[in-house]
Amino acid sequence: MSPLSLRGLTKSYGGQRVVDGFDLELEPGRCHGLLGPNGAGKTTTLRLALGLIEADAGTLELLGHALPAEAKLARRRVGVVPQVDSLDPDFTVAENLQTYGRYFGLSAKTIAERIPALLDFAGLAGKADAPILTLSGGMKRRLTLARALVNDPDLVILDEPTTGLDPQARHLIWQGLRRLIAQGKTLLLTTHFMDEAERLCDVISVIDHGRVIARGSPRELIAGHIEPHVVEVFGEGLDEWKACVSGLCRRCEQAGETLFCYTDDPEKVVAELEAAPGLRYLHRPANLEDVFLKITGRDLRD
């Protein structure tokens, strides 16, 4: 059984289709990513998937329950890490977990037994009695993750789990998420960070304008959508150099002061660059960000 199955999902606000024929079938025990620019419909899709809002059209099934009719029942087995911090500032770390566990109908005893392991998992051992106001941003985020696990969910839904965190804190969250995947939990996360999606996700759905425009593993997406090598070129004399290089690479794209040369044969481009000492360059393998920018465009979304 698929932990979450969305078919033909449509949702409009004020005549604008925010979700437009969206399909998604999660595989148990894997990490799924929703990648898309601002306003692509990521958060709306998650809210639909939790049965919080009703779709205009389409069928949804969450852990074997039809939504929205059986949403409350289905949510018993789901953990959610929301985008915006919603910890209870009046409670301590442990009180936050206790209070949240009670919303799932768990007994005080069950929750108390789970708290040490949850704190351990979140790297918050010894912080049980700390007030929320004394926690750093990273600690709060980890506590929010621990809170989402208080009901021992089968599916964990995370909306931009590492936005606003420093690199150290992000790595700690990633570590935790990988442990969840190893435990066999299914993950569904949205993110703006390509490296995050590349590191964590088994399957990535790139979405734009409310529909899936590409899907696959990070490697599949890169292999299927883009040339294997990228040479980024910037510096004095770029405009003159640009004219003579176009034959050497399959695709060139200029963004601001940088020229992105996508190619199967980077040696030729690099050799050409050696002859232009005013230019600086960076040769790297193509990554998910290149795919993302290619298929969603470089225009700013607000």
Binding site: K72, V78, V80, P82, V84, S86, D88, Y100, F104
Partner: peptide, 14 residues
């Protein structure tokens, strides 16, 4: 402000 209700709505409560 605290989004407490939003947090609760993600649980089996409505």
């Amino acid at each position: 402000v605290q989004k407490t209700w939003d947090a609760i709505l993600n649980t089996p409560l409505d």
